[in-house]
């Protein structure tokens, strides 16, 4: 009796196991198909194409690593990498400013909701409309920034028309959207148990010490998240460059994805563009990996 029950039990469990497995895969099957075609398939396809010379209308030639060799010798490739890395400066600025705003808002203040809404508002706008707005804001003569600067006796720069100032202009524009990271910090700050601060106060800790030894470690996972979001996003800048500067002046804003787009869809160098695409993929992968690896030294996890 006892054994037969156990056997019965076993087969029922076995059946359930297979049913669960089948159902599980059924539920995630849309993603599996999508991943196979639009992600894994596309990436492999991209790699295959990068080994060819292919200008969409003409024939395809196998060139092996030829495109990658060409890439290393291509000064515009290096320029676009340099431009994109320079733009990464917006990330620490957004990290610090977002945290400062969140600290300001994480107190008992009147109109908290209003301030939070105002600071977050730019983050809900995006795309061509915002790029046009900032193109007009940075107009050297009639744009609002230089008009206001002129009022206090400063002659503003040419901004997007200047090789030196085009990049700072685009970074300023990105800082306008600091509200998104502010909101993430704010949530993290509100999740810190007040008991920690109370205990520190009893021990006579100063504000600075509390900030350095309680606040920073407690929000470090969120700092890491904002850092990664910021870096990955910065590598993909396209719309601003396409609408506002077209990569100029003198290639000062030749962002990587803009350069990739030009090769693929203006000059139809599908092979070369795919090589660029793979390098982009690898650069983002390596950067994310390095950040995650280094984060072990400064990110604090409670469990």
């Amino acid at each position: 009796m006892a054994t037969s029950i156990r056997i019965l039990n076993g087969t029922v469990r076995g059946k359930l196991y297979w049913r669960r497995t089948l159902e599980g895969y059924l539920f995630i099957s849309p993603w599996i198909i999508g991943f196979a075609v639009f992600t894994a398939g596309a990436l492999l396809g991209s790699f295959g194409i990068s080994l060819t010379e292919w200008s969409i209308i003409g024939d395809r030639y196998w060139v092996g690593a030829g495109n990658y060799v060409k890439l290393v010798q291509d000064q515009f490739f290096w320029k676009s990498l340099q431009v994109t890395f320079l733009y990464l400066l917006n990330v620490p600025m957004n990290l610090v400013l977002g945290l400062l705003l969140a600290l300001l808002l994480n107190q008992k203040i009147l109109g908290l909701g209003v301030f939070r809404t105002v600071f977050f508002l730019p983050s809900v706008t995006a795309g061509v409309a915002v790029s046009l707005l900032w193109l007009w804001i940075f107009n050297p003569r009639f744009g609002v920034i230089n008009v206001l600067l002129a009022k206090i006796g400063i002659q503003g720069p040419m901004w997007l028309g200047s090789e030196t100032w085009a990049m700072p202009a685009l970074i300023i524009m990105s800082v306008w959207g600091v509200g998104g990271s502010m909101l993430i910090y704010l949530a993290a700050l509100q999740g810190i148990p007040t008991a920690l601060y109370e205990a520190a106060t009893i021990d006579g800790a100063s504000h600075l010490r509390k900030f350095l030894y309680i606040t920073i470690p407690m929000i470090s996972p969120v700092l890491l998240l904002n850092l990664i979001i910021g870096v990955i996003g910065s590598f993909q800048v396209f719309t601003q460059a396409f609408i506002m500067t077209r990569g100029g002046p003198n290639y000062a804003t030749l962002f990587y994805v803009l350069y990739l787009y030009q090769h693929a869809f203006q000059w139809y160098n599908m092979g070369y563009a795919s090589a660029l695409a793979w390098i982009l993929f690898i650069v983002i992968l390596v950067c994310t990996f390095l950040i995650l690896k280094m984060s072990r030294d400064w990110v604090y996890y409670e469990d």
Binding site: E23, G24, W31, A42, L43, S46, L260
Partner: peptide, 27 residues
Amino acid sequence: IRFPGRDALFMLVLATMMLPFPSVIVP
């Protein structure tokens, strides 16, 4: 739903969040 391979596949989901759309536009 608990099924074999789930956690590994979910890691793959997380990894694709890092994949930049521009790197697959050509294919």
